[in-house]
């Protein structure tokens, strides 16, 4: 049993995630890259949408806008609430289909615990 356990631990070291750098989960690593690319594009798209909404909020209240207010300022609580809702909807709509095979396409918000 002891030998079996240590063999198990050695085998676990072969799992993709134990590799540092850029581990692959698919036989064809292009698929790994494409999934990472779509997630990164989604995040960057969200950054732009968030920025645009922030710009619109500032311009609706003031005639001028400064780069520093965009870079380090924060949107109002009301806008933040709207953004939080919109962001979740976008993630569900774009990425939920990945799991449709097992009926998990309807994603609900839950915490980690």
């Amino acid at each position: 049993m002891t030998d079996k356990k240590s063999n198990d631990l050695e085998d676990l070291g072969k799992l993709p995630g134990f590799k540092r750098g850029n581990p692959t989960y698919f036989e064809n690593e292009v698929i790994d890259h494409l999934i990472s690319i779509t997630l990164e594009l989604g995040a960057e798209l969200w950054v732009v949408k968030d920025r645009l909404a922030h710009v619109e909020e500032i311009l609706s209240e003031e005639n001028e806008i400064s780069l520093s207010s965009l870079r380090t300022g924060k949107p109002s609580d009301l806008l933040q609430e709207q953004l939080d809702k919109e962001r979740k909807e976008i993630i569900k709509r774009i990425y939920g289909r990945l799991y449709s095979k097992y009926g998990g396409e309807t994603v609900d918000e839950k915490s980690a615990i």
């Binding site: 969200w46 950054v47 968030d50 939080d84 962001r87 979740k88 990945l98 918000e109």
Partner: peptide
């Protein structure tokens, strides 16, 4: 920066919706 905050908001929600909820 606001940019980083927005990016991390996306990542946190993606983790919740695509991992924890699944």
């Amino acid at each position: 920066s606001r940019r980083d905050e927005a990016y991390m908001n996306f990542i946190e929600d993606a983790r919740n919706l695509l991992l924890h909820a699944q």
